[in-house]
Amino acid sequence: MVALNSRIPGILFCGIAWALGPEAYGEGVTVEDVENSAGLGLGQKVAVIGEEKKVRTATVNIQEIFRSYHKVAHAEGEINIERARVQKEQNQQAVKLRAMDQVLRELECSLQGLNNSDVRRQDLEREKGVRFHERERWKRQRAVALKASHADINRRMVARMEVLLEEIRSLVRLEAERMGFDLVFDIEGTGSSQVPFLLFARDAHDITPRIIKKLAESAPQGAQR
């Protein structure tokens, strides 16, 4: 029984060796084979590394492009015209307010010229009260209307500028793809801490001049800067 147990490992080894062939005994495997196998693996790794595509990076200054875009200047001009119209209306309303104040001052002067027993005093005091409340109501209404006008102008301005920004972003994406860039960073872009996202980029290509030139090509005659 002991002899049989001692023969089991040898039998198993022979069976495995027979299944694997001569390589299990080291037969037919030379040093050159091992070196060639190792060299093949290393060569494959080098080939994979060599095939890895280098990431091409570009930078762009969106703020500079935005300031130079002819549509932005045109939009700002229209917004300024609208603000001037609101300011003109405000000035006209200020003239009306001064006229109402003048009426109140005249009523006050008339009251001061009457004694307490004068029968006209009650009517003048009533008229003064009516005029005063009318002035206050009109003043509040004008303040609300003026605030709403400015809010509407600001809302339309923000919406319009956002459209122009999207036009710029779309052109940046298109040109970056045409030029074969993988990443484009806005050098003026900042996070919540007001720190720029990009502080350094090796071999990054600045495509800002190209974008400005492309946008300028769409400007009407006389609008190019």
Rank of each mutant, 00 (worst) to 15 (best):
N5W: 12
G10V: 01
L12A: 07
C14V: 15
G26M: 01
E27S: 14
V29S: 03
V31H: 13
A38K: 14
G41V: 15
V46K: 15
I49E: 15
E52L: 12
V60F: 13
E64A: 12
S68N: 13
S68G: 13
K71L: 02
A73H: 15
E76F: 06
G77R: 05
N80Y: 08
E82F: 06
R83F: 07
R83T: 06
R83S: 07
R85E: 04
V86N: 05
K88S: 13
Q90T: 08
V95I: 03
L107R: 06
L107I: 00
S110H: 07
L111Q: 05
L124S: 00
L124V: 07
E127G: 04
K128F: 08
V130K: 14
H133S: 14
K139H: 12
R140N: 10
R140S: 09
V144R: 08
A151M: 04
A151L: 08
V158F: 10
L165M: 08
L165R: 11
E166Q: 08
I168D: 00
L171F: 04
R178V: 02
G180M: 01
G180L: 01
D182P: 01
V184F: 01
E188M: 09
G189H: 02
S192I: 14
S193K: 12
E217K: 11
S218K: 04
R225D: 01
